[in-house]
Design a binder for these strands. Structure first.
Lengths: 202, 202, 202, 202
DNA sequence: AATGAATGAGTTTTCATTCAT
DNA sequence: CATGAATGAAAACTCATTCAT
């Protein structure tokens, strides 16, 4: 993702492949740039440049800026899906949840610099378009909540939904603080606390 | 704050008083509108209108938009100072912290609609002006952390700073989730959990 | 014309036939869409879509947008030629002219919605390209004037050209009003008046 | 109107007077340029330039292009109101109507070059914004129809509304033909015919 | 001649900031 | 200090036209 701006279509690739690749490149660039600069501060030109695509051409793939934001959100959803799928290879729900925390902590440098991608997007979209994309952003978070609740249910704890909220709120809170204080160690320490908490359950 | 937009200077007031009042009105309007609409979506004209001040005049009180944002941050700092002063009337540090949680929960409707004023500002400013206002926003949060750490220290728990981070992260996390889900009850439930946690310490 | 957008080339048709059919489909689509949406509001892509032709392919049949407009004008000329040919089956010039009025009135619903195809095109082209296509549009109208003048001449009235102008102006005027007022009955009533006028001559 | 583009605010004029003058200048420029170039071909920059106003400043007076179009329509309404007021100085309704025709004919050069301002705007707006400004344009025409109907009623002819439609349709038709043929004499000749027709009534 | 994709110029609109009075 | 008005630099979006297969 970091070097996506230099990814150029291979010479020998067919048109169709190039087009799909460009769309993917644009989506990845959108996810990255929107996270780093925020929705309002990001111009279409910024995403275009990051993806190595002329500005006018972006509109061939995404009719509006909002569609690019939507694509970025979908990218985050996909990331999450991949992560949970990976975690589900472990049959123990507690281990799965701790694996989730590990994943969060492993992103601590990014979080300290730019915050949680989903969380910051949610905050911005809530102001940008009440009753539109903000709901889409909320869905991403809801997806995370649902998955966590499933694990808590499997764990047999009471009020799995409440536990899920606590877990995700913990993640969002520590990301925001790590970002505000520009201190990735906040993630490490709060991650430890969350793991201890998970161990203490049931 | 709600009726700040209709506050007009009294006829008999002196020039200086009027000027100070105007500045106060602008600051209050900035704090409110910036919270509700976000920094990027708010035009100077919006704040001017909310404060009942002609647009061109704003610049005699605040040279740039950033100064208005700074004023809004100062307003939040003042709110916090007033709150902690009030809480300090209780000699028990644990009661103070629980009072803080109560104050947060009492703002649940606002949080569900617009998020935590300081938190959302922090997120936005981090993107807006890396190395500028974002640091100011961070200071507000640091102030809160410091105060909480003091109470934890007085409580005699180990790692008071870590506990402060956990508490404030809990607040930011539950505000963000309440906002995303548009559900004030998230604040109520997580507030309860924080209170229970505080009771369990030492 | 209504179903032109679904017309697809038959599988067994030869290359040439397909090409000609495509050109015809594009011309018909141009005539229709340009009438309904206007020249400036119509994108090449709109015409391509209506004709079921890929956008890039349009340019093999029409080098520019203006050529498409020209084709649409030719289509209207052809319509007019077919109509007058049909009318000339009646030897009585007065009957021919009344038949022309009948034809106009029969199009009242279309006129009320989109105006006279030729008239609205003329108005638009006059602004679009002074000294270019507007002259082509004028030719269509001149053709109508000439035919009408012939009939008036055959009728033996003095100043056949002046009568032709009166007749066609009556048509354009009632079309414009029917369109502005969105009232097809304007066509009916003014058509009656024109017929009465024709009967009163000589 | 012709030299409006060189009209500059007088040095000694007050701000308020200048502002009002600028708005008037913009409205006049809009009416003229929109008539000459058409709505779609006219950029805000064209109107700004014609009025001697920087582009960005236009938006201080008119929030959108549509508002400028609306102002132009209002200008035409005002022209019409002034004209009818002038005509009403004559007590004879027939004379009033003939005076209206005279006014139309006197504009023949403009009509031959750009068509009837209201008529061409109506045609364009019908395509541009179905259910918006087109209705406003229709109102201008309706105003003319109403005034004419009043005169016909005063004349004591049956179906005054129908006669009004015939008159106005005659005007629109002859304007369109004069424009298409670029021949102002069409206006002269059809104007004569309308006057004769008016004399023949009752 | 077929076609999806590319390009770049043009247009509307928004706003922070400045200026004239 | 007051204030309406001015300014100019973005930014999103559209599209005719062209190009690489």
């Amino acid at each position: 993702m970091t070097d996506s701006e230099t990814e150029q279509p291979a010479k020998g690739s067919t048109r169709a492949a190039t087009a799909a690749a460009k769309r993917r490149r644009l989506t990845a660039a959108a996810a990255q740039v929107l996270h780093e600069k925020g929705v309002e501060r990001t111009a279409i030109a910024d995403i275009a440049q990051a993806a190595g695509v002329p500005v006018g051409n972006v509109y061939y793939y995404f009719k509006t800026k909002d569609e690019l934001v939507e694509a970025a959100l979908a990218e985050h959803t996909a990331h999450l899906a991949a992560l949970t799928a990976e975690l589900e290879r472990d049959p123990d729900p507690r281990a799965r949840l701790k694996g989730l925390v590990d994943a969060w902590v492993s992103q601590r440098e990014t979080a300290a610099r730019y915050g949680c991608p989903t969380g910051t997007l949610t905050v911005e979209l809530d102001k940008r378009d009440p009753g539109g994309l903000d709901e889409t952003a909320a869905q991403v978070i809801r997806g995370l909540l649902d998955w966590a609740a499933q694990q808590f249910r499997a764990l047999g704890v009471p009020d799995p939904d409440g536990h899920a909220v606590t877990l995700v709120a913990g993640y969002q809170g520590m990301s925001l603080l790590a970002n505000a204080l520009r201190d990735p160690e906040v993630m490490t320490r709060e991650g430890d606390r969350l793991r201890t908490w998970l161990d203490s359950l049931a």
